[in-house]
């Protein structure tokens, strides 16, 4: 076993949505203000245990996401903390105006919890594989945007956002994924990036499922003599600009990695920070402004350029650009 992967041992794979479901049940026990709403996707969002244990605080809205967002906004007026659960597609694009007016502009304490984001949704195909949601939600004033990397981090993030006063978009997914974010070593603190691997040649800034791919890429790069620093950005907004700048000032170049369109997401958020403060070569691991398609998560990540080998290549390109610019 090699050195970097050894630092992130994992014995199991779990879906991030299950981290959300488990934490929601925990919140049911610890915070009587927390209520849960779903639009006919309680099973997919792993909310059934909450519904079973706290039936009086669980609201089945039916297939009516716009109504769900409005109801959630109204519930905050009585001091409740509503967590809405549906697919990322139906949590954002379908209800953008409801979120914009009734939640973000109205400054309502609603937690928009969104599963099945990105390509790794898999076989359902492009209608459900939203790749624009981070961009849409980032653009809303007052909105916090979080995309955790694994089960543990999703669990911790779900608990944390209940304590945060204000609207939050929490993005997670469907596939089984390595569970590697040890919360004692890398605790989830809203708005604080976690440097997982230290390096001096290139910074890889990743979010969500791409964080594990970044660790794999760093391993391969190390074998080739390139020392990559890996940063897990779970909070995309507000972005931990200090962490980004501190790392890139050290390494001189950056690769951003996200399961999202190359427009509007983490990559552009990082590019803005760098262009204002410390211009540096940047490569983007993201979907090339296209819709997805049906396939397995692995097939899709490979076909759309989001797998480990492409991340390694992007890092090598970024390093080259430091000297050829």
């Amino acid at each position: 076993m090699s050195s970097i992967l050894n630092q992130f041992p994992f014995t199991e794979k779990k879906d991030t949505r299950s981290g959300f479901g488990a934490a929601l049940t925990k919140l049911g026990e610890t915070n009587p203000k927390v209520v849960a709403l779903t639009a006919d996707l309680a099973g997919s969002l792993k909310m059934n245990e909450f519904a079973k244990q706290f039936p009086d605080r669980f609201y089945q809205i039916g297939i009516a996401e716009a109504n769900m967002m409005g109801i959630a906004a109204g519930m905050t007026i009585g001091g409740l903390i509503p967590f809405t659960g549906t697919f990322a597609n139906f949590s954002t694009g379908r209800v953008y105006d409801q979120i914009r007016q009734s939640i973000a502009y109205s400054q309502k304490n609603v937690k928009i919890c969104a599963s099945h984001a990105g390509l790794t949704l898999g076989e359902d195909g492009a209608t459900h594989q939203i790749l624009e949601d981070i961009g849409m939600m980032r653009m809303l004033p007052n909105m916090t945007v979080i995309c955790p990397a694994d089960y543990n981090e999703t669990y911790a993030a779900t608990l944390a956002i209940a304590e945060h006063d204000g609207p939050v978009y929490l993005r997670f997914g469907r596939p089984s994924w390595p569970v590697f974010m040890d919360q004692t070593r890398f605790p989830f603190v809203l708005g604080k990036a976690n440097v997982l691997v230290e390096g001096s040649d290139v910074t890889i800034i990743a979010t969500g499922h791409m964080v594990w791919k970044a660790i794999e890429a760093a391993e391969i790069l190390r074998e080739r003599g390139v020392h990559a620093e890996v940063i897990n950005i779970h909070t995309i907004k507000p972005l931990d600009e200090e962490a980004v700048l501190a790392s890139v000032q050290k390494t001189g170049c950056v690769v951003t990695a996200e399961e999202h369109n190359m427009f509007g997401g983490l990559g552009e958020a990082v590019a803005r920070v760098l262009s204002l403060n410390y211009p540096a070569p940047q490569e983007f691991i993201a979907v090339n402004d296209t819709f997805g398609e049906s396939g397995t998560p692995t097939e899709l990540l490979t076909k759309y350029g989001l797998d480990t080998p492409q991340m390694v290549a992007a890092a090598e390109t970024a390093v080259r650009r430091k000297t050829t610019k």
Binding site: V35, D56, N67, G70, I71, G74, M75, G78, Q98
Partner: peptide, 17 residues
């Protein structure tokens, strides 16, 4: 079109409280 949903949410919160 959004205010009825908001009103329902506030009404449900009243029941909850």
């Amino acid at each position: 079109g959004q205010g009825l949903s908001v009103g329902i949410g506030a009404a449900l919160a009243k029941k909850q409280n």
